[in-house]
Amino acid sequence: MSVIYLLLTISIVVALVFFAAFIISVRSGQYDDSYTPSVRMLFEDEVVKNTTIEPTTKIKKSNQLNKKQNL
């Protein structure tokens, strides 16, 4: 029955790992802004779709691009 020592140790270590993960995530500022990431995660895919649809405008306007970059 001394296996209980082992089980207890494992369970507490697992709990501590999650606890540490929580502390680290708070420290890194993940909970400072809980709204923007929810919007941001929806962006990426659409951008790819968008660029494949309109490749012509990109090339056509590329000289303008350089001009605008010297703002």
């Binding site: 400072d32 802004d33 923007t36 929806l42 605008k68 970059q69 703002l71």
Partner: peptide, 25 residues
């Protein structure tokens, strides 16, 4: 959300900008 998107893509507007992150609230 448009504001967030365009401000986080500032690097496309100027090569000197490496990263931009919006805090919406």
């Amino acid at each position: 959300s448009s504001c967030i998107w365009v401000l986080e893509n500032l690097k496309k507007l100027h090569p000197g900008i490496t990263n931009s992150q919006v805090d919406f609230p």
